[in-house]
């Protein structure tokens, strides 16, 4: 079951972004690991969507981590302590350490942002953006895109099946693949453009291009306390980063 929401999506997004900034600035594997174990893991477990988030994390981060390990573990010409010489590829301690440090950092980056995004209430985020006076065009594009992505994927699948029923066979060659891609994308784009044209007329007739302030039908879940919290968080992380960077400058 999804968790009960405590904070506004803007607060959650800002906290996640600042956590990523902190991890990048500190850039110590110990700190990254601590954030991963003490921050990301509990957040995933308490999200009420642990399985979904875990699966998404594994699918997004897994291949990248394996790629990183293979790339730096086997091909790291700067490495001096060689563990295994395989001719063109050499396993070095430095390469493995580099892959591990980047791997932990990358996992935190993906873990923090993916957990926040997958527990985010997009409608609430868009309502907050409207209440806070964000650019209405941006709110429209973001909201509309998020709603359109599953629709495009589904329509793409339907067109693919229809074209296959008509005899579309995609071979292994690049020309055949390009032809297959065209056979699916052309009707997909035409259909979407027709929809866009209708939406254009609909929006214009409802005064979309007018410059007046918008009203959201959803209540504003953002509070004065959270706004103060966000400013303090921004200030705190900014100061911490400045101090850390000054202190850790190599002499």
């Amino acid at each position: 079951m999804p968790r009960r929401r405590i904070y506004n999506p803007v607060t959650e997004l800002l906290t996640a972004a600042l956590l990523v900034v902190l991890v990048l600035v500190v850039n110590r594997w110990e700190f990254s690991l601590a954030v991963l174990v003490l921050g990301v893991l509990p957040a995933v477990l308490l999200s009420g969507r642990a399985r979904r988030i875990g699966l998404a994390l594994a699918l997004v981060t897994g291949p990248l981590l394996i790629s990183s390990l293979l790339l730096h573990g086997l091909f790291f010409p700067e490495g001096e302590r060689i563990l295994l010489d395989l001719g063109i590829a050499r396993v070095s301690v430095e390469g493995l350490v580099f892959a591990a440090v980047l791997g932990v950092r990358t996992s935190v980056f993906a873990g923090v942002l993916l957990t926040t995004a997958m527990t985010l209430d997009i409608a609430e985020l868009l309502a907050t953006m409207t209440h806070r006076g964000w650019n209405r065009k941006l709110v429209f594009v973001v909201g509309s895109s998020v709603g359109l992505i599953p629709h495009v994927a589904l329509r793409g699948q339907q067109i693919t099946r229809a074209q296959q029923a008509r005899g579309l066979v995609v071979g292994r060659g690049p020309v055949s693949r390009l032809r297959g891609l065209l056979a699916v994308t052309t009707p997909l784009v035409i259909g979407l453009l027709v929809d866009a044209s209708e939406r254009n007329h609909m929006l214009e007739s409802r005064g979309f291009s007018a410059a007046v302030a918008r009203t959201s039908y959803l209540p504003d879940s953002d509070t004065a306390g959270q706004r103060v919290f966000r400013r303090l968080l921004l200030l705190g992380v900014g100061l911490s980063c400045a101090v850390w960077l000054i202190v850790s400058v190599p002499r």
């Binding site: 650019n135 065009k137 594009v141 784009v189 044209s197 929006l203 979309f208």
Partner: peptide
Amino acid sequence: LPMLSTSSLVVMPLGIAL
């Protein structure tokens, strides 16, 4: 964003989704 017409704006989500 403020410079874009409605016709440009409605096609942007399409491009993003693609």
